[in-house]
């Protein structure tokens, strides 16, 4: 069974009289252990999809099953609980807590987990080391560069060992070389640890790091490009189920 299974996924927003439908009957499967890039024009619903996958927004219609759990069936409280164990999201603008050090930011999600203090500390240190930012553990976000802040954000995302790691334009605000090294980090999290990653990006070069690229258009997956070791790709026609 795929890790993510979306059927007829629809999300509508109301803006006064007008109804906006960023997601409109989207079907999608993502297998565990995959690294998937999500592309599409601005306003095509990429962030909306990611927020649904992250359990911080709810579908208007359709079903969304992640790791065997139907997210639409969960209460607000259950959804929060689910987020704290199963999913993490990395944002374009990092979203670190400004008054907390890098260490404290990474520790934050673990405060929800019943772990011995020692174990919690070990996990925070491991996540900081994994994101190559352990040397800045006692720095405040404002003392860090954008690339460094994003490393802390990634450490915070992986410290809970989530089943699904989401990233919404994680390099969108970074210079070329910082972006490259963040992409290196995400690639290695996928390659070396088998993490399942869904990354929204505008940058084709970033998308190349992924095994598959989904193109969103008019609220659906318009095209899937799968990439194996070589540059062989397959195109799926629109309106059929995308499988990545």
């Amino acid at each position: 069974m795929p890790l993510v299974e979306a059927r007829g996924l629809t999300r509508t927003y109301r803006k006064g009289e007008q109804e906006i439908r960023p997601l409109d009957g989207l079907d999608l499967d993502i297998d565990a252990g995959r690294f998937v890039a999500l592309m599409g024009p601005s306003g095509s619903g990429k962030s909306t999809l990611l927020n649904l996958l992250a359990g911080i927004d709810r579908p208007t219609a359709g079903s969304l099953v992640v790791d065997g759990v139907d997210l639409a069936a969960l209460s607000r409280r259950e959804l929060a609980e689910w987020r704290s164990r199963k999913v993490s999201i990395v944002f374009q603008l990092y979203n670190l807590v400004p008054v907390l050090t890098a260490y404290e930011n990474v520790e934050l999600p673990l405060l929800l987990h019943d772990l011995p203090r020692r174990e919690r500390h070990a996990r925070v240190v491991r996540a900081l080391e994994r994101a190559h930012i352990a040397h800045r553990h006692d720095h405040m976000p404002r003392q860090l560069s954008g690339g460094e802040e994003q490393r802390v954000a990634i450490a915070r995302a992986i410290v809970t060992e989530p089943a699904l790691l989401l990233a919404d334009e994680p390099t969108g605000d970074l210079d070329r070389s910082s972006a490259e090294s963040i992409l290196d980090l995400l690639s290695s999290l996928h390659r070396d640890e088998g993490r399942t990653i869904v990354m929204v990006t505008h940058d084709p070069r970033a998308a190349e790091r992924a095994q598959a690229t989904l193109h969103l258009e008019k609220g659906r997956v318009a095209e899937t490009i799968a990439r194996t070791g070589a540059k062989e790709s397959s195109r799926a026609p629109a309106n059929t189920e995308a499988h990545a």
Binding site: A54, I56, R76, R77, A80, E81, W82, R83, S84, R85, I89, N95, L96, V97, P98, L108, P109, L112, R156
Partner: peptide, 16 residues
């Protein structure tokens, strides 16, 4: 506001 939103994304419940 933003930090509180981050807390909720991380799985902090409203009551927490």
């Amino acid at each position: 506001v933003r930090e509180t939103a981050v807390l909720e994304v991380l799985g902090f419940t409203g009551s927490l």
